Simulated assay, not measured.
Amino acid sequence: MSVTVRPAQVFDAGFAAPLIQQTIGAIGQALTGSASDDEAAHVIAQFFPLRGHRLSFTQTLIAELDGRPAGLAVLYPGEFAVPLDQPFRDFLKSRGLPDQVVSEGLPGELYLDTLATLPDVRGQGVGTALLRACSEKARQQSLPLGLLVEEGNPAQRLYVRHGFVAAGQTQLAGHRYLRLRQPLPEL
């Protein structure tokens, strides 16, 4: 089995949106003002082909296993977190909802917003390939790679295996998250 990682394209919306929502759950519902995962995934699918926001195809990598999409990673420089969240604030406001979106990425890091694989490919190297591609992008930008993981999420083990260390905690959408950071390698 061969895993390749490529930049996402507009046509990946149908694959990416439900997988993103399955992974971010309550955050996706809060970000889209949706009452269900299906509704949130629908809104994310509408946003995905557009540029200039945090869940855009331009911020996404797609992992393929034997030529079919099997996972994804969404990442962006933390210094752009607030402007990348503005389209969601505007969307919420247009629906008459509070436009309170907490920006997750921090200045001085490449923020890994979402890392997800299809359930049937877990344990086949897809998550590792995506994480390596993200780490390489961070290295190219001379930034540590940062992320949030919900407490108790088994994915935390993958991050620790790849050199991530604890860097704090935060609350988002009523859930508690650990902030992890993968330092830049010493040269």
Rank of each mutant, 00 (worst) to 15 (best):
A129D: 07
L19R: 04
A16F: 02
A16N: 14
E39D: 15
L148C: 09
F15R: 11
E64T: 13
G52A: 04
A173S: 15
P87A: 06
F48D: 09
F80Y: 03
V126H: 13
V165I: 15
P49M: 09
Y177P: 02
R181C: 11
Q141D: 11
L50S: 13
Q182C: 13
V121R: 02
E64P: 07
H42M: 09
R176D: 09
I24L: 12
L187K: 10
R95G: 05
P183G: 09
T117K: 05
L84N: 05
Y177I: 05
Q141K: 12
E109V: 13
D66C: 09
R179S: 07
D99M: 04
L19C: 01
A16P: 09
N153H: 11
L106Y: 04
F57H: 15
S135Q: 15
P87T: 04
D85K: 03
L97P: 00
S94D: 02
E109H: 10
P183R: 11
A16V: 14
I27R: 07
R54Y: 07
L187C: 05
R139D: 10
R157P: 02
P7Q: 12
A26T: 12
D113I: 00
M1Y: 06
Q171W: 01
L97V: 01
D85L: 07
Q100G: 07
A138T: 09
D12Y: 06
L92S: 08
P98I: 03
P144S: 08
R95Q: 15
M1S: 12
P98N: 11
S2M: 11
I24D: 01
